[in-house]
Amino acid sequence: MTITLVAAAAENNALGKDNQMIWRLPDDFKHFKNLTTGHYIIMGRKTLESMNGPLPNRTNIVITRQADYTYEGCIIVNSLMEALAACPQDEEVFIIGGGEIYNQSIAQADKIELTRVLGISPDADAFFPEIDPDKWVKEKQLHHEKDEKHAYEFVFETWVRR
């Protein structure tokens, strides 16, 4: 199994505030959809609820501490280990947030697909973990200018474990 974290974070690693994303970047959404469609995705309960339900054309696995939690169209588990065990062992699996789930999973991850939002360090209550350059190497990056649909410039970064 290849474990890939997918996130969009500001320069200060901010992910969101009050269970909402801080920016709207349509090309980042397209990138995310291209990466994850047809795959298993793992997320925390708050991330699921912030999206108003499971994402289509993906197997949605939700981690929660709530013993009796249910959500139609999702596999509900109580730990990261249970979530990983529910995934095919020969496929790439995507962890899509939030901050607490990224912190739990970065040690097991093989790859990070990070959209780095430039020129902004917003107030936030959820953060992506620091990427340790001794453990990770940036394999590629693709810059995207701001334009009429994108209020911020950003970079698609692919990191792989050393």
Rank of each mutant, 00 (worst) to 15 (best):
R24Q: 06
L25H: 01
L25A: 00
L25S: 00
L25M: 00
L25K: 01
F29Q: 13
K30M: 07
H31S: 09
H31V: 00
K33A: 11
K33G: 01
K33H: 14
T36I: 09
T36E: 08
T37H: 08
Y40T: 15
Y40V: 14
I41F: 10
I42Q: 02
M43P: 08
G44I: 05
G44N: 02
R45N: 07
K46G: 07
K46A: 14
K46E: 14
K46I: 10
T47Y: 02
T47S: 13
T47I: 04
T47V: 10
E49A: 02
S50M: 06
M51C: 09
M51G: 04
N52F: 05
N52V: 00
N52R: 06
N52M: 08
G53Y: 04
P54V: 10
L55Q: 01
L55K: 00
L55E: 03
L55S: 03
L55P: 01
P56S: 07
N57D: 12
N57A: 08
R58I: 01
T59W: 00
I61R: 00
T64M: 03
R65N: 03
Q66H: 13
A67E: 15
D68I: 02
Y71E: 13
E72F: 04
G73W: 11
C74T: 13
I75C: 14
I75E: 14
I75K: 14
I75H: 13
I76E: 09
I76N: 13
I76Q: 11
V77G: 08
S79V: 10
L80F: 14
L80Q: 10
A83H: 12
A83C: 12
L84Q: 13
A85Y: 12
A85M: 13
A85P: 09
C87P: 11
P88I: 09
P88R: 06
Q89N: 14
D90T: 15
E91V: 03
E92H: 03
V93C: 07
V93K: 03
I96V: 15
G97T: 10
G98E: 02
G98I: 02
G98K: 04
G99A: 05
G99D: 09
G99W: 05
E100R: 12
I101R: 03
Y102W: 05
Y102P: 05
S105F: 04
I106F: 01
A107D: 14
A107G: 09
Q108V: 07
A109P: 05
I112F: 07
E113L: 12
E113H: 15
E113R: 11
L114K: 10
R116W: 09
V117Y: 11
G119E: 11
I120A: 15
D123C: 02
A124Q: 08
A124G: 06
A124I: 07
D125F: 04
A126M: 03
P129S: 05
P129I: 01
P129L: 04
P129W: 08
E130T: 13
I131L: 06
I131T: 08
D132K: 00
K135L: 15
W136G: 03
W136V: 03
V137H: 15
V137T: 15
K138P: 07
K138S: 04
E139D: 13
E139M: 11
